[in-house]
Write a protein that binds this DNA or RNA. Structure first.
Lengths: 204, 204
DNA sequence: TTTTTAATTAAACATTTGTTTAATTTTAAA
DNA sequence: TTTAAAATTAAACAAATGTTTAATTAAAAA
């Protein structure tokens, strides 16, 4: 891992836990074990560093559901199951990065970043939308509000994992409960969301 | 409105749109039309000001659903409908404040604040939980995962309204679409969420 | 090897930050 | 009206911020 990458990794860690404004370039430099000037040398400015971080990390989040659309060996609801599990998996693996994206998204400044961030977060939306729509057109799914169904799917997973404190409070767990290292929680979330989507989408 | 309150209102506005670290006390002072020193005079420090803001605003969010629990003239699902509409209403009215709470929640520092914030956000959770549980015990609702059902309810509404940009992208709307001033969207969200909860909760 | 380019450093830079001071004005009480 | 307290101000404070400089070291090319 070259020095550029080390800086990126430190930046993502600190930005994610302390926010963009809450993190100083000196902190990043110390964490990465490099001289402060190195950051401007490699990334020009703090703002550009942030953009680089987003770009860098987004490249790992590419897993798209495009190939699922025309897969004929899976039923529509089976496709939804896969989407649910992959969405959960991704949230669990990239928690810090997701936090970073969401906290920056809700702030008003850096408008050009907002577009980039929401694009990343919604990258997989179009194929999923298409899958639900196809299910409706084929008469297998009910005529639901496609966009809001998607919002429910992602929103459920996202909201539960907004923060450790939040998750513990929702589930009524003690302080020693660590949501992101809990396999049972992952399974429970998966079961609930699949059940919910079945009840919502499938015809009776 | 006294000067203390003017400062609080400016603080909430700026903190909400630019974040805690992204807002300077001088900005708040200018926006409130007071001298910078006034802020420390009234609120001791920036951090204490933030706590005051949270406390101040939280007092307006008290509307709890406790009286709904033992209301016998409403069916369980009617109660859920009311909860949905009130949750939506609140999100639309207090958008800035909700953003503020959520963005601070996901950051690691100020841990004592995290507890206070999640308490505010989940204030109404207990009675709603009780209502769903009652529905299950009475044999009207299916045996669902109560906590996660709640997460879905709030998560759907919250996720759609995370940011204007996000909302527009999800719904495939143009730039002139303003989510928070759109009555149709409110209705659409209400219809979807109620429909979803009916399918999920009611026995077939 | 010599030369040129790239990487790295410590120090300094100019702003901005939150906060405090000490003086002044306004308000309320005696 | 006089006196005491509260509110308000401009200025200064020290610390932290992002960034740049100019010098030095390491690596690559000639």
């Amino acid at each position: 891992m070259d020095k550029r990458e080390i800086i990126l990794e430190s930046a993502i860690k600190l930005f994610s836990t302390k926010g963009f404004e809450g993190t100083s370039v000196r902190e990043i430099a110390t964490d990465a074990g490099v001289n402060v000037a190195m950051i401007n040398y490699y990334f020009v400015s703090k703002e550009k560093l942030f953009e680089s971080v987003v770009e860098y990390k987004a490249s790992f989040l590419k897993v798209v559901f495009t190939e699922l659309i025309n897969n004929n060996s899976l039923s529509p609801i089976e496709k939804i199951d896969i989407i649910i599990d992959q969405t959960i998996e991704r949230k669990f693996c990239n928690r810090d990065f997701h936090h970073l994206l969401h906290s920056e998204l809700s702030l008003e400044h850096r408008p050009q970043m907002r577009d980039a961030i929401s694009d990343i977060l919604l990258k997989n939306m179009i194929p999923v939308k298409a899958i639900i729509q196809r299910g409706i057109d084929d008469g297998i799914f009910q005529k639901v509000d496609v966009e809001l169904t998607l919002t429910t799917l992602i929103g459920t997973i996202h909201y539960l994992l907004t923060s450790d404190t939040m998750c513990r409070k929702i589930l009524g767990k003690k302080k020693d409960f660590n949501p992101f290292q809990n396999k049972k929680l992952k399974e429970r979330l998966s079961v609930h969301t699949k059940q919910l989507m079945r009840a919502h989408l499938l015809k009776k």
